[in-house]
């Protein structure tokens, strides 16, 4: 693979804190290697800012290997940038060319208020899980793991839903800022397993109620979430969420 260097113009959202008004700032970075990751390019920019005595840009990031779900940049109009099924930290500068202008914005959603610059508050996701995204089993309750055979296809399907990293790209890409893909991945993960059956009805009703309370929008099936999801979580999970919801609602189960 040929490596090359590039000079770029960056338009980045800067916002001091949740209360203040933000605005775009324009920066230029030079001699960026095509081998860098997108966040390493931001490291270069931040070092540059520090040397100028300015405050570096705040953004969420941690594992930098695409699994923790912390990174969350809206790059040139796309959650996590132009590469398919890729988190911001795994996006590499090969995706850009010399002279490009890159616009970087935080996730935008009423339920994800900006904390600072590109960093947003995603604790709404934790509260959705608190509403029922678990199986109520205390430590020590368990029986032998193989006493409960689970068909491979069900286990695989459940796993596919469980690979959600909770980054919020689905919310960021949805025109309604809906958290349906996130929520549905958890509902599907647990509904597909026999262990999750006992709480199946209350779980979906309570989690949906919490999602609404947090201020996420309704799903209108545009499919943008699936297209931008770095883990390729399928909207077939939303189908399952809806079916679970109807089933729970019609059987007259009482939420909470």
């Amino acid at each position: 693979m040929e490596h090359y260097n590039m000079n770029l113009t960056l338009k980045v959202w800067r916002q001091q804190n949740a209360q203040s008004q933000g605005a775009f700032e324009t920066y230029s970075v030079k001699e960026i290697s095509s081998e860098m990751s997108f966040l390493e390019m931001f490291d270069v920019l931040n070092e540059q800012l520090i040397h100028e005595g300015k405050e570096p840009i705040t953004f969420d990031h941690d594992c930098r290997e695409g699994i923790c779900g912390a990174c969350s940049m809206h790059i040139n109009g796309q959650a996590h940038g132009p590469w398919h099924e890729t988190t911001t930290c795994q996006l590499h500068m090969r995706a850009f060319k010399d002279g490009d202008t890159i616009v970087v914005e935080p996730w935008r959603a009423a339920a994800f208020p900006v904390i600072k610059d590109l960093m947003v508050d995603r604790t709404a996701f934790d509260r959705i899980i608190q509403a029922g995204g678990y199986i109520s089993v205390n430590t020590g309750n368990a029986q032998d793991a193989n006493n409960l055979p689970i068909a491979k296809d069900k286990a695989d399907e459940s796993f596919a839903a469980a690979t959600c990293i909770g980054c919020g790209a689905c919310v960021a890409s949805c025109k309604n800022a809906s958290a349906s893909l996130f929520l549905s991945a958890k509902v599907a993960h647990l509904a597909l397993l026999p262990q999750g059956d006992a709480e199946r009805k209350t779980r979906v009703l309570n989690m949906v109620e919490q999602m609404d309370k947090e201020g996420f929008g309704a799903c209108t099936n545009t499919g943008a979430c699936e297209a931008e999801c770095p883990k390729g979580i399928s909207i077939m999970n939303i189908r399952r969420l809806n079916a679970e919801y109807i089933r729970a609602g019609l059987s007259g189960s009482i939420a909470k």
């Binding site: 775009f24 109009g77 914005e105 935008r108 959603a109 025109k175 309604n176 800022a177 929008g217 309704a218």
Partner: peptide
């Protein structure tokens, strides 16, 4: 649904 994103994207 429109109100769930009070600040929109530039791009």
């Amino acid at each position: 649904n429109k109100s769930k994103r009070p600040v929109g994207y530039n791009v």
